[in-house]
């Protein structure tokens, strides 16, 4: 399931569960493409939580998490960042990262 969140929503997330948080920008072609990839993954893994955050509107959070560009995908587990993927990736790379934490 894909849910759009803000920094405020992020603060109340329970990061102990495995999840993917993607920083995107509305002005980014690869981010638009990634949204279709993530939709496909959400269909394949409907129970895995995917959160998307607007990079431009949540600058303090992206600074805090060390996100330098978009799209950036952070994979969380047990309250910590387990891995990250920077730039547009295809389904197999993202699924591999999900399966490593799920």
């Amino acid at each position: 399931m894909i849910t759009e969140i803000s920094q405020k929503d992020y603060e109340s997330l329970d990061l102990s569960a495995p999840m993917l948080i993607e920083f995107y920008s509305k002005t980014c072609g690869p981010c638009k493409m990634l949204s279709f990839v993530l939709k496909d993954i959400a269909k394949q893994k409907p129970d895995f939580p995917i959160y998307i955050i607007d990079f431009d509107e949540n600058r303090e959070l992206k600074e805090r998490l060390g996100v330098k560009g978009f799209p950036t995908m952070l994979f969380f587990k047990d309250g910590k960042e387990a891995s990250r993927l920077e730039g547009l990736k295809q389904k197999p790379a993202i699924i591999k990262a999900i399966e490593a934490i799920a």
């Binding site: 920008s25 509305k26 002005t27 980014c28 072609g29 690869p30 638009k32 493409m33 547009l88």
Partner: peptide
Amino acid sequence: KGTLAMLCLENEKESHNYFLNTS
């Protein structure tokens, strides 16, 4: 900048798709 673009090669049997990075 920011356009979603993809190049598609198609015939009756198959298709091949290539992402175009517009950043």
